[in-house]
Design a protein around this nucleic acid. Structure first.
Length: 117
RNA sequence: UGAGUCAGCCAGACAAUCGCUGUGUUGAAGAUCAAAAUUCAGCAUAGAGGAAAGUCCGGGCUCCCCAGGGCGAAGGUGCCAGAUAACGUCUGGGAGGUGUAAACCUACGGAAAGUGCCACAGAAAAUAUACCGCCCGGUUGAUAAAUGGGGUCAGACUCCAUGCGGGGUCUGACCCCAUUUAUCAACCGGGUAAGGGUGAAAUGGUGCGGUAAGAGCGCACCGCGUUGUUGGCAACAACAAUGGCAGGGCAAACCCCACCUGGAGCAAGACCAAACAAGAGUCAAUGAGCUAAGCUCAGAGUGUUGCCCGCACUUAGGACUCGGGUAGGUCGCUUGAGCAAUGUAGUGAUACAUUGUCGAGAUGAAUGAUUGUCCAAGACAGAACCCGGCUUAUCGGCUGACUCAUUUU
């Protein structure tokens, strides 16, 4: 089972700040991913998303990218245990198609997994 | 059949698996004396738009110690009538314009209240003016013709003499002078707004008469103004009389007239919990009456967009301002000017009645992914308190009504 519920999300600004304060970083042309081992050792991966209106103009595109990231995260969260993760989306990402973005995310998740080991 | 106009509708479909949000329900945890919030799991069910968009108008709703009256300011609207909760929206009508037509477009009140502006070009851009042109008169000059006068030459006739020669009359040619007329040129003084050229725009249009040339100078028709009659609720239209014509454009320039408008917004606002923290600063004026508590009156302060009145609150363990801190949870939050069908009234927008129906409610923010099949190959684009509009974006398809053209009957 690979669900994606409230437990797997970063909800408050405190939780976001926690990640920003001492984050490790992985990035490519479209995404910057910040991650940190979570405080209480929840044995869960948690995801937060940041898309600015500046970088992604239309609400439709923002929703699309969020869905793609969540879907990808859902598949990989077993590997990403104990991490709080914030994904920042860069300019121009809305131009790319779904399959390409999935591939790029796959590679980044693998990187994080390797770094932590 | 093709081209087009208007109105309405749809917004890829189906299946399997995995996943997200709400609601209902079952079970477990909470969890015990008992219950609830809450969390997790299973099942069932619902889950973006015609524009959800721009935030351009109009409302509902909420708060601001009522938004009550007068004057002013600011902003908006602008043919008429109706619809509506309301509107800058819609419907019907009028006027002007576009199109063969169905139809469509229009910020469509006032330029005779006043002020201002009208680039370039042009004579002149607003008390009309006079560049070219046309016409009249005068002066000067040139040319031509006619008449008159003078001169020279030639011829004819005639007289004196009769040899040379001289005189006179007539005719013709040439020259000079004067007068008159005509034409042309220049200048001066008037008349003219027909024509020319400029411009986005030039002082009613066309025709005939008229005139020195022209001109509403006169007439006919058209346009315009005024008055009246008729039709219409009205905007306005038709007809008649009358005036010879007031009158350039711009009011999306100021302005004038009529009408409308309190402000801020769901991060509105209410409650619960936590936190700063028994924070700092500013303010002054009280008086009179009643035995007193307290109340009343006057004054003062604050608020009410500027002023006046009115109103409300305060007048001392009070009011206001500033600073600090918090954006955790619950409510608001989706049943509403709702949607659908039928009937009635109305040209219509719409209203009323009956019956049926419930169609997202997130909050670091839900509709997606994978695979397969089919086709016309999927555009613009994502709810955030809710409605009514407007505007903008948009692949394509369907339905109905109407118009034009062509063909056939």
């Amino acid at each position: 089972m690979s669900k994606f519920s409230c437990q797997n999300r970063l909800l408050t600004s405190d939780e976001y700040d926690y990640v920003f304060k001492k984050a490790k970083k992985v990035s490519d042309d479209n995404f910057t991913i910040l991650f940190r081992e979570n405080e209480k050792s929840l044995n869960l991966a948690r995801l937060g998303l940041i898309l600015s209106k500046k970088n992604t103009k239309h609400a439709v595109d923002r929703n699309r990218i969020k869905r793609i990231i969540r879907e990808s995260f859902r598949h990989y969260k077993a590997i990403l245990n104990n991490f709080d993760i914030v994904v920042l989306v860069k300019k121009g990402t809305d131009q790319l198609d779904r399959k390409l973005l999935r591939k790029k995310l796959d590679i980044l998740w693998e990187k994080i997994s390797n770094l932590s080991n």
